[in-house]
Amino acid sequence: MDVQPLMLQRLRKEYQPGKRVQLLEMADPYSKLEPGVKGTVRHIDDIGTIHVSWDTGSTLGIVYGVDKCLKIEQ
């Protein structure tokens, strides 16, 4: 999925490094991450994947437009 430059800019502004997120849904059938797990955003790459350090120790990314997460207000 191609992410348009304006959408990528918006994602990077909304999900800045250090922001906390909670997983709502992940389409990866091999992932052991369960909905509700929380993590900290590390960065967003050029295709819009939100890279997260999950509290479980995983570092699996959230694929924009496929997986779903919730930004946790601090």
Rank of each mutant, 00 (worst) to 15 (best):
K68F: 02
P5I: 03
Q74C: 00
L33Q: 15
G57W: 04
T59A: 07
P29E: 08
E25L: 12
T40A: 13
E34Y: 12
I44H: 06
D2M: 03
Y15A: 02
V41Y: 11
D45L: 06
H43L: 13
V63E: 10
L11P: 01
K38E: 14
G61D: 03
L60Y: 02
S53E: 12
P5L: 00
A27W: 07
P29Q: 12
T49G: 08
Y15T: 01
G18H: 06
K13W: 07
E14F: 04
C69N: 04
T56G: 05
M26D: 10
E14Q: 15
I50M: 08
L70S: 06
M26L: 09
D28L: 11
I47W: 03
R20M: 02
H43P: 00
P29G: 10
W54G: 10
I47H: 09
L60K: 10
D67P: 04
D46I: 00
I47Q: 11
I44Y: 11
E73W: 00
S58N: 08
D45I: 04
C69K: 01
Q4Y: 04
T49F: 14
V66G: 05
Q4L: 05
G65S: 08
V66Y: 04
G48T: 04
D28W: 03
L8W: 08
Q22M: 14
S31G: 09
P35Y: 12
R10V: 06
V3F: 01
P35N: 14
T49I: 05
H43S: 15
V21T: 10
M26P: 05
I47A: 07
P17M: 10
I72W: 00
E25I: 05
H51G: 07
K32P: 00
G39L: 14
I50R: 03
P29Y: 09
R10M: 07
V66E: 11
D28C: 15
E14T: 10
I47T: 10
P29T: 09
R10A: 09
W54M: 12
P35T: 09
Y30G: 15
G48L: 03
Y30H: 14
R20P: 02
T59Q: 06
G61S: 14
G48P: 08
G36L: 11
Q9N: 12
M26F: 10
K68E: 12
I62D: 00
G57Q: 07
L24V: 08
G39K: 09
G39Q: 12
D67M: 09
D28N: 12
G61L: 01
T56V: 07
L8R: 10
Q4S: 11
M7K: 12
H51A: 07
M26R: 13
Y64T: 11
V41A: 12
K13G: 09
D28T: 09
D46N: 10
S53D: 13
M7Y: 03
V21N: 02
E14S: 11
Y30L: 15
L11A: 02
P35L: 15
